[in-house]
């Protein structure tokens, strides 16, 4: 079991989790992810790794609260222990491509940091762009500014940076004459699909980090299979990084919607396993 060092809400509904995991920190590479299990009755949650510090032996992740298991994770207290397993997945293909465009959305804003760092270290000129519905949902800006040659932002309501999404920033930069050799997109399925389509139109090769449902995340169960260029691939061992132009997005959306009913009804029977509330406690029911 691994101790939680920091667990705080960075921006509404996005949490920063720092876990003590020396062995994981030693072997992490950009683009990899880890599996987190909040308590015995929760799912095994795959979360991309945002940062690691081999000396301190800590690993940093950003996650969104999107269901019962991530809710339980979000309500854990610092100092408690959770199951933490990683690093998993094939590292990102990092080379010196020349000028690269990296787009991050929602949890992707935290997840693109290692890729930005790796590409910068490989000598690329790195243009980073992050998107969010509004200015109060953008986070991790200082770190990204430090490691990017250019740092841009987009908000749906135009309250900060370009009005729109990461792909609108890509359009603007291309119109301004930027020549991109490759693009990387990290975010929710819809954002990655739309961004890949735009990159394809601008014939810029692009890489995406798919987020299918996973169970063991080590290549056994096959739940995370995705269809890339007509072939079945396992996102957990063959990915999560894939060529965005070749991914069968409708299939991925359908597979991600499979357990909607169970995910919804799970809220009815969610019991707080951890802080077992003895009879006659202050009636608080579930922990805050």
């Amino acid at each position: 079991m691994n101790r939680i060092i920091t667990l705080q809400e960075e921006v509404p509904n996005v949490y920063k989790l720092v876990v003590e995991a020396p062995d994981v920190a030693r072997r992490c590479k950009a683009g990899q992810f880890a599996v987190v299990i909040p308590d015995e009755k929760s799912e095994r949650i795959p979360l991309s790794i945002s940062d690691w510090d081999p000396e301190a032996g800590t690993v940093t992740l950003y996650f969104l609260e999107v269901g019962v298991s991530t809710m339980k994770l979000a309500r854990r207290k610092e100092g408690e222990e959770i199951d933490f397993m990683g690093p998993l997945g094939r590292p990102a293909d990092i080379e010196n491509y020349g000028t690269v465009f990296i787009g991050g959305g929602c949890y992707g804003v935290g997840a693109i940091l290692p890729i930005v760092k790796a590409l910068k270290a490989a000598g690329n000129r790195v243009v980073t762009a992050i998107e969010g519905r509004s200015h109060w949902l953008l986070y991790n800006k200082e770190e990204l500014i430090k490691h990017s040659d250019r740092f841009l932002r987009a908000t749906s309501d135009g309250s900060e940076g370009t009005k729109g999404k990461v792909r609108n920033v890509l359009d603007e930069q291309v119109d301004l004459g930027e020549k991109f050799d490759i693009a990387f997109f990290f975010g929710c399925t819809f954002m990655m699909m739309k961004s890949s389509k735009r990159a394809k139109e601008l014939n810029i090769p692009c890489r995406v980090y798919l987020n299918p449902i996973m169970v063991d995340a080590t290549g056994m169960c096959g739940v995370c299979r995705v269809n890339v260029d007509g072939m079945v691939k396992f996102a957990c061992v063959d990915g999560p990084e894939f060529d965005g132009a070749l991914v069968d997005w409708p299939l991925l959306f359908k597979r991600n919607r499979q357990y909607v009913a169970h995910e919804t009804l799970a809220f009815q029977h969610n019991k707080c396993e951890l802080h077992h509330h003895a009879a006659g406690d202050d009636g608080g029911g579930q922990c805050d």
Binding site: H147, D149, L152, R153
Partner: peptide, 8 residues
């Protein structure tokens, strides 16, 4: 404004 200059 961080937007234009950025990390340059």
């Amino acid at each position: 404004d961080e937007g234009q200059g950025g990390g340059d």
